[in-house]
């Protein structure tokens, strides 16, 4: 796929947007919860907004917020965010071989990688398409940015954000996606193993590590086959 607006590219872009559109509103709600929590925990309004624009990763941004609020330093917070975002690396490895075009274009397409890319950007016949990947991320990107700004504006008026249960939005969002994934019987064993590893590491390891370690159980799947 080249960065031209050929009809096929436009078709894939549209297909991606259609696949990603149902996630825009839930993403807006999580962005809202991030914005509210950031300002109620004393961040300047520009900070969460800049972070959402530049990082575009709910899990990492929430991890950074969590470490700073728990009294961890800036270095520990950034390290947590990076560890959480390492999950994009295996997604990029899964998607990468399907991508055509020059290296700079593939780097641009990679910026469309989000947690759900492996399902939303997948072509019916297998493999992935760059335009489809970018299209699928676009509605989520928009929801995330609008939600962050709305949360920053609304936060100071709401008081304690825990009162509204907004911290339940994030895990619920991923649970709904997980339930779809679990229709495949083989995915269930993977999920149980990942849950056990992540749970065991929560009290032991720094933030971010339980997520990466949970992902790494797929290597056992490879060994089994």
């Amino acid at each position: 796929m080249t960065p031209s607006a050929a009809p096929a590219a436009r078709e894939e872009l549209r297909g991606g947007i259609r696949a990603g559109a149902p996630l825009a509103l839930p993403m807006l709600l999580i962005g809202l919860s991030f914005g509210i929590e950031a300002v109620t925990r004393g961040w300047a309004p520009a900070t969460p907004i800049a972070m959402s624009l530049l990082t575009f990763s709910g899990a990492a941004q929430i991890a950074v917020l969590g470490v700073l609020s728990a009294g961890g330093g800036v270095v520990a917070a950034v390290a947590a965010g990076l560890l959480v975002n390492l999950r994009f690396l295996p997604i990029g490895i899964a998607v990468g071989p399907s991508l055509q075009g020059r290296a700079w274009w593939r780097a641009v397409v990679g910026q469309g990688i989000v947690d759900v890319s492996l399902s939303t950007a997948r072509l019916p016949g297998g493999g992935y398409d760059g335009w489809r990947l970018l299209g699928a991320a676009a509605p989520q990107w928009l929801g995330w940015q609008l939600g962050t700004v709305a949360g920053v504006v609304a936060g100071p008026r709401l008081g304690d954000s825990g009162r509204y249960g907004v911290d339940a939005l994030f895990p619920a969002f991923f649970l709904v996606l997980l339930l779809r994934e679990l229709r495949r019987p083989r995915a269930r064993l993977t999920a149980v193993a990942a849950a056990a590893v992540a749970l065991a590491l929560i009290p032991l390891a720094p933030p971010g590590v339980p997520v990466i370690a949970g992902c790494s159980v797929v290597l056992l799947t490879a060994w089994r086959t």
Partner: peptide, 19 residues
């Protein structure tokens, strides 16, 4: 084959840590 199992593992880890 390992990467085919990644969505289930990743989503589970995000649910567990988030909850």
């Amino acid at each position: 084959a390992a990467l085919a199992a990644l969505p289930a593992a990743l989503l589970t880890a995000l649910v567990v840590t988030g909850a």
